[in-house]
Design a binder for these strands. Structure first.
Length: 187
DNA sequence: AGGAAGATCTACT
DNA sequence: GTAGATCTTCCTA
């Protein structure tokens, strides 16, 4: 079952927490699957760490899109994968920071050439392993015919929270969510 | 032309 | 585990 659009049409902190344990799927030559184990929430205009904070530009305009669409941006030579939350014209979203490889591991290894533990344990690593670039901006992950979708998975592990990683001007509340003890959570 | 960007890799102590 | 070089777009001047 694919998560419906309304799943994403909520506060990003809630979506970030509840999407843990679900399955990120990319369909092209082969099927790639990864279980989402780490996320962060980003608010738009009230969040200095958000890409939308400084106003709308050509590359971040996707943050103003519909809930459940993708926003991908480059930082330090890495593509980072975000899913937009709330609703159109309200910029906010969640960043997928890490997944646990499930299917298509051979194809991921071919792209990354590292051991499995380092395959997808970071936001820039998983996009490389999945072959995700800005070409995938705006994809609807709730639409079954999309190249990238998110499917419902089991959630039985403990969820923990912390402050976001590497952020210079973080907000006072905890906006990073991860599955406790999972070895694919970035350190 | 220059710099910043919420990451990663490598090479150490 | 930490430190420093390097990563590739896009924005501002």
């Amino acid at each position: 079952m694919i998560l419906p659009k309304k799943f994403y049409a909520r506060d990003p902190a809630i979506v970030a927490k509840e999407i843990l344990g679900n399955i990120l799927i990319k369909k092209n030559q082969s099927i790639l699957k990864g279980r989402i184990v780490e996320t962060e929430a980003y608010y738009g205009l009230s969040d200095p760490a958000s890409r939308a904070f400084k106003g709308r530009t050509n590359y971040n305009k996707w943050m103003w899109g519909e809930a459940g669409t993708l926003f991908i941006y480059m930082v330090h030579g890495n593509w980072l994968l975000n899913i937009i939350t709330e609703k159109k014209d309200i910029p906010s979203g969640i960043l997928i920071r890490a997944v646990e490889p499930i299917d298509g591991i051979e194809e991921m290894m071919k792209r990354r050439n590292v051991n499995i533990k380092n395959l997808t344990s970071g936001p820039g690593k998983l996009t490389k392993a999945f072959g995700i670039t800005k070409e995938h901006n705006g994809i609807e992950v709730y639409n079954p015919s999309s190249e990238i979708v998110v499917e419902k998975g089991e959630i039985k592990d403990k969820i923990k929270t912390s402050h976001r990683i590497g952020v210079k001007n973080d907000l006072p509340q905890h906006l990073r969510f991860y599955i406790d003890g999972n070895q694919f959570v970035s350190r």
